Amino acid sequence: MGFKLLSKLLVYLTASIMAIASPLAFSVDSSGEYPTVSEIPVGEVRLYQIADGVWSHIATQSFDGAVYPSNGLIVRDGDELLLIDTAWGAKNTAALLAEIEKQIGLPVTRAVSTHFHDDRVGGVDVLRAAGVATYASPSTRRLAEVEGNEIPTHSLEGLSSSGDAVRFGPVELFYPGAAHSTDNLIVYVPSASVLYGGCAIYELSRTSAGNVADADLAEWPTSIERIQQHYPEAQFVIPGHGLPGGLDLLKHTTNVVKAHTNRSVVE
């Protein structure tokens, strides 16, 4: 069995187990497998329904001669939608809004960016022009300005110390501490036991640490421990890039980060 097929099978099995364990909360999309990078042309966006009122959005972007996937989250909030992270750029984010209108038909009224990198804030200006209120932590807003990236308009308070959590509509926002970046936030959907790890969490097929220019490698494993301790009931975990899975993604990420750190020390 090929690795790609095995990865998709694991996603399907995880979703099936969740649907059985929580039949009222989960209505997993039966329309197909989780979209992969090879299936999404740059400039297009796919939506994948995880649970009743919960979707991931998947886009792709060219970077350094390669094409990478990027995940975000959409959560229903009454007759409105909360968006977590842009679709990595203005063109993708405009396509995301169009796809949401086509498939869901509810307005996106608020959006949260989970850290300051372009795959999370690139497209904020498109959201703002569409009347979406954009939010991020003060740290993310400051770092985005320093980096020359787009800056969300509103500040999220109460997320300055490791372990801080605040309720934001249908989700809980959690600051686990520094990891992929010093400002990275985690998003949890309690009604569906869905954990969105953003770039602080890796997919299972990833074996290298990737972009760690703004990471705190020493603190990252401790931050992941905080996530595990705060959300032990999480059933569906979405990484910032690639295929979702279960809580095993947290341990896998820790292993990859520690291996990278150990290699760096040896070198």
Rank of each mutant, 00 (worst) to 15 (best):
M1C: 04
M1P: 05
M1K: 05
G2C: 09
F3W: 07
F3M: 14
K4R: 06
L5C: 15
L6H: 08
K8F: 08
K8D: 14
L9K: 15
L9D: 13
L10I: 15
V11H: 15
V11K: 07
L13E: 07
L13C: 14
L13M: 11
T14V: 08
T14M: 08
A15L: 12
A15M: 10
A15Q: 10
S16W: 15
I17E: 10
I17V: 11
I17A: 14
M18W: 09
A19G: 11
A19W: 15
A19I: 15
I20D: 15
I20K: 15
I20W: 12
I20Q: 11
I20C: 09
P23G: 10
P23N: 09
L24E: 12
L24P: 12
A25S: 14
A25L: 10
S27H: 13
V28K: 08
V28G: 10
D29Y: 09
D29P: 10
S30M: 15
S31E: 09
S31D: 10
S31V: 09
G32D: 10
E33P: 09
E33F: 09
Y34L: 09
P35N: 07
T36L: 09
V37F: 15
V37D: 14
S38H: 12
E39M: 12
P41C: 04
P41V: 09
P41Y: 06
V42W: 06
G43Y: 06
G43V: 03
G43T: 03
V45F: 04
V45D: 05
R46W: 08
L47T: 06
L47K: 02
L47V: 12
Y48C: 06
I50K: 03
I50A: 05
I50V: 12
A51L: 06
A51Q: 08
D52A: 11
D52Q: 10
G53R: 09
V54C: 03
V54S: 04
V54Q: 03
W55V: 02
S56R: 13
S56C: 15
H57C: 01
H57Y: 07
I58D: 03
I58H: 12
I58A: 06
T60N: 10
T60A: 12
T60G: 12
Q61G: 06
S62Q: 07
S62H: 08
F63Y: 11
F63R: 07
D64Y: 15
A66E: 15
V67H: 15
V67L: 15
V67Q: 15
Y68P: 03
Y68F: 15
P69C: 06
N71V: 03
N71G: 02
L73R: 02
I74S: 04
R76N: 05
D77L: 02
D77V: 03
G78C: 05
D79A: 10
L82V: 09
L82W: 03
L83Y: 00
L83E: 00
D85R: 00
T86Q: 00
T86S: 05
T86R: 01
W88R: 01
G89M: 00
A90V: 08
K91V: 15
K91W: 10
N92Y: 05
N92P: 03
T93Y: 00
A94I: 14
A95V: 09
A95L: 11
L96Q: 00
L96N: 00
L96M: 07
L97V: 01
A98P: 06
A98Y: 15
E99T: 14
E101S: 12
E101H: 12
K102R: 12
I104D: 00
L106P: 05
L106C: 06
P107I: 08
P107D: 08
V108M: 00
V108Y: 00
V108I: 09
T109E: 06
T109R: 13
R110T: 09
R110Q: 11
R110L: 07
A111W: 02
V112L: 11
T114E: 00
T114L: 00
H115V: 00
H115E: 00
H115G: 00
H115M: 00
H115F: 00
H115Q: 02
H117V: 00
D118L: 07
D119K: 00
R120F: 01
V121C: 03
G123W: 04
V124N: 05
D125Y: 09
V126G: 04
V126F: 14
V126D: 05
L127P: 04
A129V: 09
A130V: 10
G131E: 07
G131A: 07
V132H: 00
V132L: 03
T134C: 04
T134E: 00
Y135S: 01
Y135E: 00
Y135L: 01
S137Y: 05
S137W: 04
P138K: 09
S139Y: 09
S139P: 10
R141N: 07
R141G: 02
R142Y: 11
R142C: 06
R142D: 12
A144V: 07
E145P: 06
E145L: 14
E145F: 14
V146I: 14
E147M: 14
E147D: 10
G148C: 04
N149I: 07
E150R: 01
E150Q: 08
I151A: 07
P152R: 01
T153H: 13
T153L: 11
S155L: 11
L156G: 02
L156N: 00
E157S: 11
E157K: 11
G158D: 07
G158I: 03
L159P: 06
S160T: 13
S161T: 14
S162H: 13
S162K: 14
G163E: 07
D164V: 07
V166M: 12
V166Y: 08
V166L: 12
R167W: 12
F168A: 01
G169A: 05
G169R: 04
P170V: 06
E172Q: 06
P176V: 01
P176T: 02
P176G: 02
G177M: 03
A178R: 12
A178D: 06
S181M: 02
S181Y: 05
T182V: 12
T182R: 14
D183R: 01
L185D: 01
L185I: 11
L185P: 04
I186V: 13
I186Q: 02
I186M: 06
V187T: 04
V187Y: 01
V189C: 02
V189I: 10
P190R: 11
S191G: 13
S191D: 13
S191N: 12
A192E: 10
S193M: 14
S193L: 15
V194F: 00
V194P: 00
L195T: 00
Y196S: 02
Y196R: 03
Y196C: 05
G197S: 04
G197D: 05
G197H: 03
G198M: 05
G198Y: 03
G198W: 06
C199R: 03
C199N: 04
A200V: 07
A200Q: 03
A200K: 03
A200N: 00
I201K: 01
I201W: 04
E203D: 09
S205C: 05
S205G: 09
R206Y: 12
R206P: 07
R206K: 15
T207K: 14
T207N: 15
T207P: 10
S208I: 12
S208W: 08
S208P: 07
S208L: 12
A209D: 06
G210H: 04
N211I: 09
N211W: 11
N211H: 11
V212E: 06
V212K: 07
A213D: 10
D214L: 07
D214S: 12
D214M: 07
D214E: 09
A215G: 13
A215D: 07
A215C: 06
D216S: 10
A218Q: 14
W220Q: 04
P221L: 12
S223Q: 02
S223D: 03
I224P: 01
E225D: 14
I227V: 12
Q229A: 13
Q229M: 11
H230D: 07
Y231C: 06
Y231W: 05
Y231I: 02
P232M: 08
E233L: 12
E233C: 05
E233H: 12
A234P: 08
A234W: 03
Q235L: 09
V237Y: 02
I238W: 03
I238N: 02
P239V: 05
P239I: 00
P239S: 03
P239L: 04
G240L: 01
G240Q: 03
H241G: 01
G242M: 05
G242Y: 02
L243M: 14
G245M: 03
G245F: 00
G246S: 11
G246T: 12
L247C: 06
D248L: 07
D248G: 12
D248H: 08
L249D: 02
L249M: 08
L250W: 02
L250V: 05
K251A: 13
T253N: 02
T254R: 15
T254C: 08
N255R: 12
V256R: 03
V257W: 03
K258V: 11
K258P: 05
A259V: 10
H260F: 08
T261Q: 13
N262S: 13
N262T: 12
R263N: 15
S264C: 04
S264P: 12
V265I: 12
V265S: 12
V266L: 14
